[in-house]
Simulated assay, not measured.
Amino acid sequence: MKSIPSKQSTENFVKDIRRKTRRLFTSEQKILIVMEAIRGETSVAEICRKHGIHQTQFYKWNKEFLEAGKKRLSGDITREATSDEVSDLRKENQKLKEMVADLMLRYDIVKKSLTILE
C-alpha cells in the first residue's frame, strides 16, 4: 500500500483552506471597485491591495464590466419592443391564425365538394 507523500497532502490541505475561506464579492462591490479604478485617483495596484484582491481578478472584473456596458449600449441600435407594440403584434398574430384556420376550413370544404362531384 502506497502512502501519500506529506507534501502533496499538505498542499491539498492548504488549497482546501484557501478555497473555504475565499472572499466572495457581491456584484455591487465589484462595480464599486472597478469604478474606483476608472476614476483614476489611485493606481490599480493600490486598489487591489486595499481590497485584498489580485490584479488579474481586478482586470477580469473590469473586462466583464466593460463588456456588459458595451452589450447594454448596443441595445440602443436593436431597440426592444414596447409593451404596446408587443400587444399589437399579439393581436395581429391572433388575426392571422384565425385567417389561416378559416382558409383551411374553406379548403377542406372545396376539396370534399370536388370529391363528391367526381
Rank of each mutant, 00 (worst) to 15 (best):
E118I: 05
W61E: 01
V110A: 15
D84A: 12
V44M: 08
K91Y: 00
V44K: 02
C48E: 05
R72A: 11
I77A: 12
L73C: 03
I4P: 00
S87H: 00
I33T: 07
E36R: 13
H54M: 08
L89M: 08
K60I: 03
K7A: 15
R39K: 14
E92M: 09
Q55S: 09
V110W: 03
I38T: 13
T26N: 08
R19E: 10
H54C: 08
L32F: 11
W61K: 04
M1W: 09
T82L: 10
S27F: 02
Y107T: 08
F58G: 01
Y59I: 04
A81N: 06
A68G: 09
A45W: 01
T82Q: 03
E118C: 00
V100H: 03
W61Q: 00
I47Y: 01
L89W: 07
F25G: 03
D16V: 04
G40W: 11
M99R: 14
G52M: 06
I38Q: 14
E80W: 03
V44Y: 01
T56Q: 09
T21H: 08
R72H: 12
D108N: 09
M35S: 15
R49V: 06
F25M: 09
L89Y: 07
N93V: 07
S87L: 09
T26D: 06
D102C: 01
K112I: 03
E46L: 10
S27V: 12
T82N: 09
R90N: 06
K30Y: 01
I38D: 14
E41T: 14
K97G: 02
T56E: 06
R90S: 09
M35Q: 15
T78L: 00
K30G: 03
N12S: 07
